[in-house]
Nucleic acid binder design. Structure first.
Lengths: 409, 409
DNA sequence: ATGATACGTTGCCAATGTCAACAAATCATC
DNA sequence: GATGATTTGTTGACATTGGCAACGTATCAT
């Protein structure tokens, strides 16, 4: 059933070390020795191989104030990068994320209309071509795409992205053909939970669920037993269609009484009297916190109570350590944390589920870029001996536009 | 974070081979070579070690009708056994299950009243003592307990078994002390899904959910991404408390409108006019299939529709390959498969979830024994080099009572 | 400057799976 | 019934890998 090993040992050990410095940040060789349980000499040899492959760099030790020979710091390379892509209804965002976790670039290309697949591919290809010119010294591992819709895990086919109007589009193949890079795609919320799990609110946890509230609905992802759950075909995490009421409001799939039908950003904006277009998640949160209007409070309470039903259902089934809320759901939680916590507790098996925590998402606008890049890195992390990317290009990266700066191209 | 390996290679390979012959049944050495991708000589050496440890046996080849030297058949031992225990409200069932999958014994000890923990331990200890006398030639690996309630994964503490009235009982420790065997416990429904996954309706699947309807409520278990999901503390799978209606009937936890409140065996028996005590799942299924009364049909439809809400919620979140229904839920499904299938489809994201299948549980009365034994075997399967049980006893096992025979002791 | 401590480096060793050559056991054909 | 083809077990040499112990090295404390 499962393959076995001889040189798999090496691959596995290289994989573990690369994962540790990628996800846990830089670590000394001595720390790696303790974390892995491997011998000092082995760690030395393994790190040497990773350095030779250009995947990690060794720095002179930090001043540690401790006796003994200082241990070199091993850090994931800044030069090994993945391209992260996130198509949305009004823009295509392309990011350059390094194995070290640094987001070198984040380019948001606004589109006048909702992009078709062909447009999205063309725009992405154009940005990538420009980036390659700038990214001379960098090694591009591959491309990860965060799609707001159902993505078939098997081949990255976009089965249905309702808000983009994409149905059965071979996005991965198209992007791979145009860019020559290996391309992987997944649902955006599934990537969100990956990002939060490794770099955000869920660090070190093995069982967590993530719900994101966007302008077009509610999606999510889950990690079960340390494994990002995709389900049979990669469609897992559709929390938005959980039935939470007997009401007749319907969601985007035409199902009545679901979480996505009852809990909406639009209803919050309406009751606050805010315009839909220019209000982002932070604005909404501020407005909710500032408002004392009874109508606002009533709507918040109504939505929180429905959210609690969906969360309680998931908690009873999955018994997670942590529930991470993103987008406007985070705002809903922050406005009245006690109400949601109590409502969930009332609907779950009391004492047994006391330990469940709820937290807002930590990663902001970079969430999806980090998640998509992580997807692209996964191949490399699984087998650091595989051909490590193709560094094609000319000049070094200029330093502008680091972080999550937004720039038209 | 994760340990690494040197001799781990051997352990891993031994583990894989033992798993293959345990779960997939006997296989020839040639088949093992293909399945594992290992070399013939390696398979030879590994199998030899397993034979020496008494974990597998080699038989002369079957007549294969093919050219070439016949390959010896490797089969998991019948002599290596686990004790499986399942306390219920009116009986304690103890089974002897071999690594080969054979259920050597199944002993149901009826109790006049709901057993306390002390009684359950005493009864089990007494049966095990008797068994040991009979099981001379057998090697007892350990004991697995299927508990109808919440079991903390960490240490096997029974947090809350409402129908037995057990709260925070260190059942594992008590049984281990009395019998001297390593004891592991888990929720009964979680073990049910394990059994169905390896030996029943879900063979070879990586994403499935299992719901069991018993006289005292609805529990379940899930396998996500090939891993049996326990959740943070092992409480995952409590499907019974999913909210499915706005009604005010309450479940055993006092929550209104849940699956367990609306979908009950009792209501079916009432409408059928059957007595609660003597009707088992098969009787109920027969009665439901035979009845044409409108009231019965109406109640079935009502329950099926509520069941669909809970299943749809789980499907949207988990995107499983298969839903396995056990106990009276299987009866509910079999009476009108189309209705449940259609109702679930209507509440999930159409096309994307078309492939979800629903099936009744395959394993009958042995389900929990097999699941509990699997739990006990897990240690051995993970590391076949660990001390493989203590064969203490005198005379060989008499051949009576194989299969699922029920006998008082 | 000396010692203690902690860590990297080096060479040797043991364990394990692979490989190739050979032997064995079956079937098909004459 | 003998021969060849085919498939598989067996055996011994081999390569790779991590562990280990001894030694060298870099820091801190006195």
């Amino acid at each position: 059933m499962q393959g076995n090993n001889h040189d798999d040992v090496r691959r596995h050990n290289l994989s573990i070390i690369l994962r540790l410095v990628h996800r846990g940040g830089a670590a000394s060789r001595a720390q790696l020795t303790r974390l892995t349980g491997l011998n000092r000499s082995t760690i030395g040899a393994l790190v040497a191989e990773l350095v030779e492959r250009g995947l990690v760099e060794e720095r002179t030790p930090d001043p540690t104030k401790l006796a003994g020979r200082p241990s070199p710091i091993v850090a994931a390379s800044d030069r090994v990068v993945a391209i992260a892509v996130n198509p949305e209804i009004d823009a295509i965002t392309v990011g350059v994320v390094a194995l070290s976790g640094v987001v070198h670039r984040s380019i948001r290309f606004a589109t006048p209309t909702t992009p078709t697949v062909a447009e999205a591919v063309a725009i992405t290809a154009s940005i990538v071509t420009d980036l390659r010119r700038d990214l001379g010294k960098y090694s591009i591992i591959g491309m990860g795409v965060a799609v707001p819709g159902l993505v078939r895990a098997h081949d990255g086919l976009v089965r249905n992205a309702p808000h983009l109007g994409w149905v059965d589009e071979p996005l991965c193949d198209l992007l791979a053909e145009v860019t020559g890079l290996p391309v992987v795609a997944a649902n955006d919320a599934s990537l969100g939970v990956t990002a939060e799990r490794y770099f955000g609110a869920g660090q070190g946890m093995t069982d967590l669920i993530y719900l994101n509230g966007g302008s077009s609905g509610i999606g999510g992802g889950l990690v079960v037993g340390g494994v990002a759950a995709g389900g049979r075909a990669g469609y897992a995490g559709e929390f938005g269609h959980t039935k939470v009421s007997a009401g007749c409001r319907t969601d985007s799939a035409g199902i009545a009484g679901t979480l996505e039908a009852e809990v909406t950003r639009g209803a919050l904006l309406d009751v606050l009297g805010l315009p839909a277009g220019q209000t982002d998640a932070d604005d909404l949160e501020r407005a909710l916190l500032a408002s004392t209007a009874p109508a606002v409070r009533a709507e918040v309470n109504r939505q929180v109570d429905f959210l609690a039903v969906a969360l309680a259902g998931a908690v009873n089934i999955l018994n997670p350590e942590l529930i991470v809320l993103g987008g406007f759901l985070a705002a809903l939680y922050v406005v009245d944390p006690g109400r949601l916590t109590r409502a969930v507790a009332a609907l779950t098996l009391g004492t047994a589920f006391d330990e469940v925590q709820i937290a807002p998402a930590l990663l902001g606008s970079n969430l999806l870029l980090i998640g998509a890049a992580e997807l692209a890195f996964e191949t490399l992390l699984l087998d650091p001996q595989s051909e490590s990317g193709n560094s094609a290009g000319l000049s070094p990266l200029s330093v502008r536009a680091a972080g999550s700066a937004t720039a038209a191209v």
